[in-house]
Amino acid sequence: MSYMLSHLHNGWQVDQAILGEEDRVVVIRFGHDWDPTCMKMDETLYRICDKVKNYAVVYLVDITEVPDFNKMYELYDPCTMMYFFRNKHIMIDLGTGNNNKINWPIDDEQEVIDIVETVYRGARKGRGLVVSPKDYSTKYRY
């Protein structure tokens, strides 16, 4: 499903992707292309990547092919989405308690766009932590 989203195939490429982007948010989906959770997420990302191209760029990373970051970013979920701006990881208060990443698939395009935009605006103003417009805590309480 993710033919149009570019993959990063090694740690160096991931680093360069994050480093090279000067005024856009770098959205990275860590996971596996074959994973149903990731497929769902990728589908959404694919649909939004053109709409947010002015302030964000989306990359996919296979965590088996590129295990470099698994430990650093604690990538043990089937699908993890993280945001970077100017080589800085931007945290998001999602209401879930984990501000580091989104580790569930979002199928609403607008939700993702809103999060990415909030991240972009926050990061531009020097915030390291932004608040996502939607509170995801109620939905994912066990």
Binding site: G95, D108, E111, D114, G122, V131, S132, P133, K134
Partner: peptide, 9 residues
């Protein structure tokens, strides 16, 4: 989508 203004800066 409408969001609660409490979460929007």
């Amino acid at each position: 989508n409408f969001y609660t203004s409490k979460r929007i800066d």
